[in-house]
Write a protein that binds this DNA or RNA. Structure first.
Lengths: 232, 232
DNA sequence: GTATCATTCAAACGATTGTTTGAAACGAAT
DNA sequence: ATTCGTTTCAAACAATCGTTTGAATGATAC
């Protein structure tokens, strides 16, 4: 075929990736069998091992396909803000926007699989499997230090350790907001409105910023740690 | 033996529960086999099916053993605040303390398995397996409405829907803070200090309150939703 | 001692797992 | 038309899965 120069056509490789991505979200890595994947993709069972080598390698490729792009987009967004700032420290909301805003926009893309992937990614942060965690660590190695440094400069009065914790908290809130859409039904009766993918971002970003800029715990008061008295 | 009256002795049942709890955190439900569980517990393979019936039933009992107590403790804490308030609406920080403070105190208990269990619980919110989700929903059925109502009364100016979202965000931040301790290593080089289990609570509670009370998103602006221009 | 109960044990069950194999089918180049 | 490299296919592989079985063991009551 000649017309598959632009779009390589739904070839076996990407059909497998799509099917695996969706099934991993639905059932998890372990509970998703090769036969489920190849069955959904409409390809032969052996083709996964032929194209990817193993199930582990397939899992990694499922992530690599989109995670590399995502992290580059986050870096690009950060650098754009930094260029505009001309050496001045960024505002916290800009850094949050660069990291989490990009993620949420990807999660809002329900057509090209971005939504599915972000659910999978969020779920994977708590994935016990060690090789997945190691893989994630490698993929994030180029991004995290840049954002850390930007946050340190942006919030010079906040202890760096505290900033890292809050970054971690923000990551958790976002991941659950995307991945744990099912868990939301514990709290509310309704689901996330699929018709308005931007709604989550509009609700989450203020929460993240509010948490990031919350007054520090009473580091002066160190009497009893029963109940935090008042924060604001 | 006569001296095993006070402490019912590490009987088979609870040895299985302990081993399963630890292994589920370490490897997840699917990746943890019956043979791993019985091997660590030092009991016969068939004893799981004898005492619990099936692997599914074992999983549910692992949760039930501690979750029932946890939810009762959360309710007790809430009712204590409500009694003291004499009908007046509670302060947000009191509600957060009742729900999340109790959880964090359980997570700080590294000796009696509370820490292990809370990691497992946090991880399970994103668990795809349907029967676990259904089970969690049932266990939370008595607790969630009470806290929802308390929050609605406490924040009469905030739309109820927004409150539910923020409750969901808080749940996510806490779950990740506990369960995703491994994910923290993506961000920081160090781990949570095991010697100071209360540290997490002191860091997390201000973050949660800051997010809960953050100013609402600019619900007036509704121009284009390409890139959120400015938030603050 | 003997009967009765609950529990433990080694062994095996069928089903399913990820992976491998060797032949068949395909497309492009000679 | 024939060769070559790539891809697909049905079938089988050993390993492991959760579960079941029936006999051995233990403790308790008669």
């Amino acid at each position: 075929m000649a017309l598959q120069d632009a779009k390589p056509a739904p070839d076996t490789r990407s059909r497998i990736l799509d099917a695996a991505e969706a099934l991993f979200v639905e059932h998890g890595f372990e509970a998703t069998s090769m036969r489920m994947i190849t069955g959904r993709a409409g390809v032969n069972l052996a083709s996964v091992n032929y194209h990817f080598g193993s199930k582990e390698a397939l899992i990694q490729d499922v992530f690599r396909r989109r995670l590399t792009w995502l992290n580059e987009a986050r870096l690009t967004a950060l650098e754009q803000f930094e260029r505009a700032a001309k050496g001045a420290p960024l505002k916290p909301h800009q850094i949050v926007e660069a990291f989490f805003g990009v993620s949420l926009r990807m999660a809002a893309d329900t057509e090209h699989g971005g939504h599915t992937f972000m659910r999978l990614l969020g779920r994977t942060y708590t994935e016990p499997s060690s090789f997945v965690r190691q893989f994630l660590a490698d993929e994030y190695a180029a991004v995290v230090p840049r954002f850390k440094q930007a946050l340190f400069r942006s919030l010079p009065d906040v202890p760096p350790e505290e900033i890292l914790w809050r970054f971690h908290f923000m990551l958790g809130a976002m991941s659950y907001a995307i991945a744990g859409n099912d868990a939301l039904q514990l709290v509310a009766e309704y689901k996330l409105d699929e018709k308005d993918p931007g709604a989550l971002a509009r609700r989450l970003m203020p929460f993240l910023l509010g948490g990031l800029r919350a007054p520090l715990a009473g580091q002066a008061v160190k009497s009893k740690e029963k109940t935090p008295r008042k924060a604001a």
